[in-house]
Amino acid sequence: MIQEKRGEDLSQVKSILDRYPRERRFLLAILQDIQKTYNYLPREALNEVRDYLGIPLSSLYSMATFYKALSLKPKGTYVIKVCDGTACHIRGSMDLIDEIRKLLSVSPGEVTKDGRFSLETVNCVGSCALAPVMVINDKYYGNLKPAMVKEILAGYGGIRGDWDTK
């Protein structure tokens, strides 16, 4: 399991906070910006948010665990989202997940040991006409077959084997 990184550079948190008035309604947006910048919500950053908005840490944690876009653990550099919406599901998204699991030794919700990939399933990315679909960071891959996954992942620098040695 990946440990929370210590001693993050918090200067960017301050500049994120500066963009928003001190009102509770901006909490979700603030947390999303932090998530985007750091790939997760560092504990120290949450402390800053608590002080800025005057909201108890417990409320921040309930937000962080409720919304899927937020995470308390670092995500991979490349976030692989396999769509498991209905259209993708009946066109074989589970086979894609099996293939990725095999190639990267990672299950949905986990991060690879080297921290480069995280695998997630999402409930529909709205590209059902291309089902099954996989999104890596912001790039969409449609009409996939399990056999195509290996080459796509190779484009991001690694499949198992050449990557164990790294």
């Binding site: 498991d84 259209a87 599901h89 409930n123 529909c124 709205g126 590209s127 059902c128």
Partner: peptide
């Protein structure tokens, strides 16, 4: 907040 899997009208 179109969340139904298999729907992308609003998008």
């Amino acid at each position: 907040d179109e969340g139904d899997p298999g729907a992308f009208m609003d998008r």
